[in-house]
Design a protein around this nucleic acid. Structure first.
Lengths: 242, 242
DNA sequence: ATAGATCTTGCGGGTTCCCGCAGGACGCCG
DNA sequence: CGGCGTCCTGCGGGAACCCGCAAGATCTAT
């Protein structure tokens, strides 16, 4: 067996190296990469089947790397190893995991023992291991009760990117009014109205919705970065269409 | 000599412990805290005069901790030890450092040797040590040429918090039109107009300004968090006034 | 199949935003 | 002192936003 570690922090990298050697004695080689780009290259050139992946890295982040790795070999087993359980990350991961793939999500704050257990479960038993805390988020956020549906999330992102209602309508193939309806749902769910004092009209709903989403970690830097890239792509595309 | 380490990541904590012991043999005791709150308590109860402080921590973050520590004992020597050189952090630190205080800002990605040198310079020689990269940011961002003046930054924050022009005017003691003038400067400096395709009117200037600021790390989570707290404070205050 | 819930769309209006224009206040310098 | 640049301020108008109302469309369930 061979394991690839993609992690930018050298301390965490050597810690992972250590943990892998201890938990997986059958592992005969451990590769290391310090960022997303070289990580992908290594994964491709060595045909890595077991990967430990940090989500937050400068440049190409973990989610992008995972997506392109899984696109080539969906059976790759990936353990996400992250500092945070931001809803933006959790959502991003859920969105890209292929059907039936074995993966894991363990927080860096977890005890070393948990990490080792997760390593064996995923890489040997081929089972999913999701940190309890992350699991809770998944259920809450993906259930339609309290959380945000995919379409609502799309609109939220569009608003955050600074698109006009009209452009959002064009991009998502909706009428202007429908976009505004969805916006109202958003304002409701994000509790934009109560976020300031009771001064009516004291608030710009649009930007406040975005910062509320940021404050509750529904959005974060890497989500914005990714969304921005997709938007630029779409802009090029739609310029051609017209 | 006694050194206090405030850092949430256990790996980095023990690494710092090690580095301090190696670089400062005259240090007879090293205290550790895993978050801002207990860090402040330890600093107070032990009268710590040398502190190594992580900026990004859950809950009470490094900037808040530093501010309250420096408020009590401005002669405390603090080494900021951070993953990032976001302009938001750099600006936040510059804003709170007392006159003549010795402090340092070293990135976690720096070589171990740099860290040790910085430790000696700050804690023994009482000299400031600012990472080159951070230094560059400081000069660029605080000079009025290319960067943002304090008043512009204030307005940017207010916009990000979702305040209306009218409320911003009231908060900053300006007329409505002045606020809007400043907004136009902001849109200009943040290059809001060119951030999308040349489609005129395709863009909501207000929210786009915020995300542009986020994307270039002029704002980040902890800056928003802090600004939100100050806003709530002001809301209470102004409710009393009225 | 019929009723009810949910989603979409159009219309209309009140409000806020964005900004050009122009007048006034203040400091600087020859 | 008279010009000049910079900032603050008011006015006005076009555009975008927020949202109540109401008529279709779609889907579900009994």
């Amino acid at each position: 067996m061979r394991v690839l570690i993609i992690e930018d922090d050298p301390l965490h990298r050597s810690f992972l190296q250590e943990a892998v050697r201890a938990a997986l004695p059958e592992c005969r080689e451990v590769l290391e990469a310090a960022n997303g780009v070289t990580g992908e290259e290594l994964a491709r050139s060595h045909g890595a089947e077991q990967i430990i992946l940090d989500l937050q890295m400068p440049g190409r982040n973990g989610i992008e790397a995972a997506r392109s790795i899984w696109r080539e070999r969906p059976e790759t087993r990936i353990l996400f190893w992250s500092n945070y359980s931001d809803e933006a990350y959790v959502r991003g991961v859920s969105r890209i995991v292929p059907d039936g793939a074995a993966y894991g999500y363990v927080l860096k704050s977890a005890a070393e023992e948990r990490l080792k257990l997760a390593l064996r479960s995923i890489f040997i038993e081929n089972q999913c291991v999701i940190d309890r805390e992350v699991r809770g988020l998944q259920q809450k956020s993906l259930g339609p009760n309290n959380g945000f549906s995919d379409t609502e999330y799309e609109i939220l992102v569009d608003v955050a990117l600074g698109l006009t209602d009209r452009i959002i309508a064009r991009r998502r193939n909706l009428s202007l009014r429908s976009v505004q309806n969805r916006l109202q749902q958003l304002y409701d769910k994000l509790e934009v109205y109560h976020s300031l004092g009771e001064e009516t009209g004291a608030i710009n709903l649009r930007t406040r919705a975005v910062t509320n989403a940021l404050l509750r970690k529904l959005l974060n830097y890497s989500a914005l970065e990714k969304a921005e890239a997709e938007l630029q792509e779409w802009l090029k595309q739609s310029a051609v269409d017209r």
